[in-house]
């Protein structure tokens, strides 16, 4: 009985870590959705690009200079964030601006085709075999009453909470955040009130790309593999965002963590004790998604939107 509780606690902890990754990817969708009403299906691919850039910066530095390990990973993080800034701005230029007045369907398909292109480009440039990244903490952990807590997982969880709260503060308290809210409400009225709408859009896409790059940097040592299929993980963040309430920033972390815990527990203890759970544990997030949409489409923390004719 005692081992069951320990196992369960272990699974819940690693579920929270996985959920934090989902939360970070979902945060990217939600930022873009909140300010521009565009749904970015390429968020997972942005994360993949971030992970690849980080890997190559670290490899490059390791080959040429002999800097201490801590600095190396810090430089990798800073480098991928800088790359994400340029890349997010580029995406705003090619996806967001030309498609302002198009239907939801066209925008979704534009981001999906961007995702397809990114995946193909990365595998053409970096090769299709998967890369093995190093962990900055080298597998350090401490033992808390039988539950193994790795430093990396703890960093991921803290990073996700810090980023989500930072963006929550930014959106609700700062001038730029309120400008973003005004833009999402009504771009023309916001423009008339002196909000630089184009700059707001560019800033939102850059933020989303930065969040994606950070989640890629955090995920790659946890998954201990980098390959082009990492982008598919981004799809699993959609159920997380919907569960938390699409358009709500704290909803990202709530939905992400709930979903991560459900997934790990069903893969571990539940599959061990109930045979049939094994069949569904890779689609359980989608079952959750459909259930949420059927029961409460606004999610846990979302607010009802009233559509005007």
């Amino acid at each position: 009985m005692n081992s069951l509780i320990t196992d369960l606690a272990q699974e819940i902890f690693s579920g929270i870590a996985l959920g934090s990754i989902y939360a970070l990817i979902a945060l990217g969708f939600i930022l873009i959705f909140k300010a521009t009403e565009v749904v970015n299906f390429a968020q997972g691919e942005l994360m993949m690009v971030g992970a690849y850039v980080n890997f190559f910066i670290i490899q490059g530095i390791m080959g040429d200079l002999h800097v201490p390990t801590g600095w190396m990973f810090l430089m990798g993080l800073v480098g991928s964030i800088l790359f994400a800034i340029v890349f997010g701005w580029f995406l705003d230029l090619v996806i967001n601006r030309p498609l302002r007045d198009e239907s939801v369907f066209s925008i979704i398909m534009a981001t999906i085709s961007m995702a397809i292109m990114l995946r193909a480009l990365v595998s053409m440039i970096a090769g299709s075999e998967s890369l093995v990244p190093q962990s900055p903490f080298g597998g350090a952990y401490f033992n808390l009453g039988g539950v193994i807590i790795s430093v990396l997982d703890l960093t991921i969880i803290i990073g996700a909470i810090v980023l989500v709260s930072a963006f929550y503060y930014f959106f609700n308290k700062t001038r730029w955040g309120i400008a973003m809210q005004a833009t999402s409400e009504d771009p023309i009225a916001a423009q008339l009130m002196g909000v630089p709408v184009k700059r707001v859009y560019a800033l939102v896409w850059i933020f989303a790309a930065i969040v994606a790059a950070i989640s890629g940097v955090l995920l790659s040592p946890r998954a201990s593999l980098i390959d082009t299929n990492m982008g598919f993980l981004g799809l699993k963040a959609f159920p997380a965002a919907v569960l938390g309430g699409f358009g709500s920033i704290p909803g990202a972390i709530v939905g992400g963590i709930i979903l991560g815990v459900i997934e790990t527990v069903s893969m571990g203890t539940l599959s061990f004790h109930f045979h049939w759970v094994k069949e569904i544990n890779d689609i359980i997030v989608w079952i959750v998604l459909i259930a949420v949409l059927m029961i409460r489409p606004t999610g846990i923390l979302g607010t009802e939107e009233i559509k005007k004719v």
Binding site: V94, S106, A110, S113, I116, M117, R119
Partner: peptide, 16 residues
């Protein structure tokens, strides 16, 4: 991966 890249590109250019 040329095939999927071309599909993505064709799609993207058509939408825009």
């Amino acid at each position: 991966e040329m095939e999927s890249f071309i599909f993505g590109l064709v799609m993207f250019l058509f939408i825009i």
